[in-house]
Nucleic acid binder design. Structure first.
Lengths: 219, 219
DNA sequence: GGGTTATGGATAGTGACACTCGCCGCTATC
DNA sequence: GATAGCGGCGAGTGTCACTATCCATAACCC
């Protein structure tokens, strides 16, 4: 297929496809003549992956490029690819190394130890967690950390479900891409579910009967 | 205190503070003379809230303005403020209304019904969930929806913990701000925990003993 | 009391980002 | 052989979160 059809199939403008090719997110089509190329199903798939990471996952183009290069590299272990995804997915908080973040890092290390997680806590995810806990302190909600265990329980449960899914439904070759997609879209899905659960809980606790303004939210 | 000290206390540049005042995120200081104003603790707190929502939560300045206006409005119910937060927090996916998203919406409605959640499924969070599920389908991971129940269980657990925290540790006046902070930072915390749990699970399942490259991830 | 620094207020500029446009000469198709 | 589409490329656009500069005045420091 040529670029016009690819554009229609993937719902991405021709100009944008050209841009992605220039940026190295999408391989160029196979040239059939000096200025004519043909694209295949793989291109459609790749475009959908790009859009999912971009729109739902909120990754930057540069981050997606790194992830995609890693996904395409059959030499890299899944571990490495996931590490790259996490590195790119997690925003960089270059907080000056003050006492608060140090203390938060210690709390993260304790949590990891208590859970028996086989993880170095200076992992990007651990750093992100420390930054979030420090931000919580800053804002005056240090006590929130008390319910961290409930969060960790939930995270373990979700991670277990993710592993089950991967084990049962994902072919070996597709493992890496699945992991990336699952990591990124899983965040979005969980966040949405949490929001729904909050609205429900909030309705039960605070909602007056007959007051349905909490259930649906016009802007 | 004057603007210089406020800047030092909050770790935000003077220029940026002026920008936030202009943008309506931060109330102006109280003028003591035509070109001299004084700021208080509330300003420090507010700045920290802004930075947390911006850096960790990833909200835009415009979104933060709406949230803050809602937080400051004592007339508004917590429900409404949370609705605004959710509206602003969740990215807008203006997907053309194709069959896929319609089908995803139906799946969301079924899930909500099965859970007995008192929520209108055309909630922004429900929409976000539908969009994420549709994106999952696009990318060829429709089966992922099979483990949605595990996600929903985890979300309920977290939401319950959140409510407990609010009930025990948050004063009535601070309820709304806490809810906003908890919603936004809670997402970041859970995502980080999930990532940590993944690394752990991945280590157990795929990691060769002695291969520690999955545990820590240099770029 | 005089020089340096800080301040409030306003306008304009910056750099990153994700596209988007327009052009060229060529090709496919009707 | 007209017309629409194409590949490739450089330049332009709009948004966003600041950042820089300017001015007149105020505070501080010897």
């Amino acid at each position: 297929m040529r670029i016009g059809e690819l554009s229609r199939r993937a719902g991405v403008s021709v100009a944008t496809i050209k841009f992605y090719v220039r940026e190295g997110l999408l391989p160029a089509g196979e040239l059939t003549s000096p200025n004519q190329a043909s694209y295949g199903e793989a291109h459609v798939q790749r475009l959908r992956l790009i859009r999912a990471l971009l729109d739902v996952g909120g990754l930057s183009v540069a981050a997606i490029r790194e992830v995609i290069v890693a996904v395409d590299d059959r030499e890299r272990s899944m571990h490495k690819v996931l590490g790259i995804t996490a590195n790119r997915l997690v925003p960089r908080y270059d907080r000056e190394s003050d006492a608060a973040i140090e203390e938060a890092r210690k709390r993260v290390a304790e949590l990891v130890a208590a859970r028996g997680w086989q993880v170095f806590p200076d992992n990007p995810a651990g750093e992100a967690l420390a930054a979030a806990l420090a931000a919580l302190d800053d804002v005056g909600h240090g006590r929130f950390a008390e319910i961290l265990d409930a969060y960790a329980d939930a995270a373990e449960r979700v991670a277990r479900a993710d592993m089950d899914y991967v084990a049962h439904h994902v072919a070996r070759e597709a493992l890496v891409e699945s992991a990336v997609v699952g990591t990124v879209l899983g965040d979005a899905i969980f966040a949405a579910l949490r929001r729904l659960a909050h609205v429900d809980a909030s309705n039960r606790v605070f909602g007056r009967p007959g007051d349905d303004e909490g259930a649906t939210e016009p802007t």
